[in-house]
Design a protein around this nucleic acid. Sequence first.
DNA 1: TAAATCGTTTCATATAATGAAACGCTGTTT
DNA 2: AAACAGCGTTTCATTATATGAAACGATTTA
Lengths: 259, 259
Amino acid sequence: MIFMNEDVKDLNLSVVKAFTLLDVFVGDKKEWGVRELAKKTGYNKSTTYRLLSTLESLGALQKNNEDKYLLGLKLFELGNLVSIHKALRKQSRVPLEHIASEIKETVHFGVLSKGQVLYLNKTESPQGLKVSTQIGSYQKAYCTAIGKVLLAFSSEKEITEYLKMTSLDACTDNTITDAQVLLEELKKIRKQQYALDMEELELGLICIAIPVFDKNDEIVASISVSGPSSRFKLENIDNYLTIIKKGAREIEESINYYN
Amino acid sequence: MIFMNEDVKDLNLSVVKAFTLLDVFVGDKKEWGVRELAKKTGYNKSTTYRLLSTLESLGALQKNNEDKYLLGLKLFELGNLVSIHKALRKQSRVPLEHIASEIKETVHFGVLSKGQVLYLNKTESPQGLKVSTQIGSYQKAYCTAIGKVLLAFSSEKEITEYLKMTSLDACTDNTITDAQVLLEELKKIRKQQYALDMEELELGLICIAIPVFDKNDEIVASISVSGPSSRFKLENIDNYLTIIKKGAREIEESINYYN
DNA sequence: TAAATCGTTTCATATAATGAAACGCTGTTT
DNA sequence: AAACAGCGTTTCATTATATGAAACGATTTA
């Protein structure tokens, strides 16, 4: 469901409905019919039909050869124009590929946005078994390496606020679900300057992440490397860290140069 | 203005207005106030205000620190989920970088969409003076190398249809504005298997492009290399072509493998 | 052949979008 | 200091438009 950041204002309900329909496509199912969407959203069949027709004629949706709707090129166009974090996205691309070409695992690059990790960029592992995240999607911060790094180097006030608004639900048996334990973990991360996710989000998935700072030593983003526990061995950490840190420095140099 | 692909149907006007507002941000100006947008679109100030508020609360727009609106992260999220041409976008990334790293000029990758070139991917030149196009944006086909290649290898029927719906306006003195001349040019491109744009879109800008085929030898996309006329010399063409063709073959192999 | 889908259209009704005007705020000009 | 001009925002009566149950025609399934 779409996140409303203000109290119930004088919103245009048609527009809200249109975007609620589009938001359905964020899920795994990428192709929808009229009645399916009406059922999913609870909107009347006629209303749904007309909203979909409208979105289609605007290019925000498109019909495939089976007459099912899918997200359209207008959204691709608009999405590529979003200027928020644009510099970070651009300047992270090459360094991420350097890291990925050396480590051969999936590399992610993200920031904290509304108390969640927002993935701005990635380079996928060339191997068959790999993590696959959507750029532009969100993930829980407290049980990912990238999220824990971003939290660890946030201000005390932001961390407190985060803990207040977040419920630490267990994703696996390893998930940190106690606020005190999480605070200790963040302290440890600040000290060692990297974070690990030992199957805390998903069984079999291990990640390591480090911070990216600006010229004022404030954290601006984080880089993580993720791989299956079968080949992601702890004895490689020092080696991984050396490579990731090189990439982080490349990014830091370019953002300090351009700002 | 947004392209309406059907006769005036039973469209939801609020949604049309919302997207017309978003479409204003496709222009060069990326930050807008309420009254500015109202003036630009012709909508009433109150209506504009409420639509903008709605779009903001949905995350489709966002306010900067000066309370001006800019495109929001919801569009980034949705844009990254658009599945049309997704495989092409993904599989072109690495080959484009190979080309760019050898030629050191901006490399573009695009398809024909609604009679225009749709840019699906790019790698920018590392040099200061460079072409800068938006991924997801559209460009005229008849006066770009990439567009002429895509046209040249389209079916006769598609070319005829293109010429019927397109007016060949001059962008520079070199632009081909006569349909017969353009048809001759396409014939030449088919024969030599590459296209040149000799400052036909913009003075000082030269491009070279080649086709990318699928396993049935149908054109699926085109790769172009663009640079300023000051350093883009015709005697380098053979060298460029060798490099670009290598990249095209990489893409062709991966799309034939995955389909 | 009948039943069950689907997307689409109809039409009376009620709801929600609309716009002129007023409001409060900020910064500039007189 | 006062008047002005710019901005985003709110108000409220009016009107236009979104709405949904039902019917429709076309496919697909039983």
